[in-house]
């Protein structure tokens, strides 16, 4: 474990807590894409298949349970909670996200580190996580009103990925033959997707104006 990875995990944890806090306290999911949350739930489901078979550490297990629990409860809140579901704007959340999953699955079948079910599922989760934010970014462009919590949520998600890239650089230089192109390429692509959002987030923060994404 290194400081970059710990910072990344804590930022990731903060992002899901911010989202849960928003949905649980103000009972609203306005501006939140259910499709992105469903994709994240699938990412954790397919990535943590070895949750009970491959023990890494207490920290690892607890964090996996938190991410699984939080992502599924967010999906439940938006789909099922009698108050929250009313604030879900499905007409704006139109990205065909299941359409995104097939290329990730096919790619995982052809490009992976070991052709076993677990490894293919894990690689699928890496590719899926890279593009899971797309429905949310598309929805933000559409609704254009980004409330603070949603903006912070996306900012934290992007920061978590940026910390992970620093973690990979650190591990590359400190551990013998630590090379994982698949994770690195997918991770860089994922972080770049946030790049555009980061730019406008910082502009709004610097000029102290409300965050607006260009149409």
């Amino acid at each position: 474990m290194n400081i970059f990875r710990l910072a990344g995990d804590m930022t990731h944890l903060a992002s899901v807590l911010v989202l849960l806090l928003k949905i649980h306290t103000i009972k609203s999911c306005a501006g939140i894409s259910l499709k992105t949350q469903e994709l994240f739930a699938i990412v954790f489901l397919t990535r943590y298949l070895d949750l009970f078979t491959n023990f890494i550490s207490i920290y690892n297990t607890i964090m996996k349970l938190i991410f699984l629990g939080s992502s599924f409860s967010i999906v439940w809140y938006i789909r099922r909670h009698r108050v929250v579901r009313r604030s879900y704007d499905k007409d704006q959340d139109t990205f065909r996200h299941f359409f995104l999953m097939w290329p990730c699955l096919i790619l995982a079948i052809f490009i992976n580190e070991k052709f076993t079910l677990k490894e293919v599922m894990w690689t699928f989760s890496i590719y899926l996580e890279a593009i899971a934010i797309l429905p949310q970014l598309v929805m933000l462009q559409r609704t254009r009103n980004i409330d603070n919590l949603t903006g912070q949520y996306i900012f934290l998600l992007g920061a978590y990925r940026a910390f992970y890239i620093l973690n990979w650089i650190y591990r590359y230089f400190t551990e013998e033959h630590y090379v994982h192109w698949i994770t690195w390429v997918a991770g860089v692509i994922q972080t770049l997707l946030y790049g555009d959002f980061f730019y406008y987030y910082f502009q709004s923060w610097k000029n102290n104006v409300k965050l607006e994404l260009p149409a």
């Binding site: 990875r5 995990d9 990731h12 070895d50 491959n54 890494i56 550490s57 690892n60 964090m63 996996k64 991410f67 580190e113 070991k114 490894e119 894990w122 992970y164 973690n167 551990e175 013998e176 033959h177 630590y178 090379v179 994982h180 994770t183």
Partner: peptide, 10 residues
């Protein structure tokens, strides 16, 4: 490198 060493990441 064994793929497992990456699996220690979340």
């Amino acid at each position: 490198s064994t793929p497992s060493d990456l699996k220690d990441e979340l």
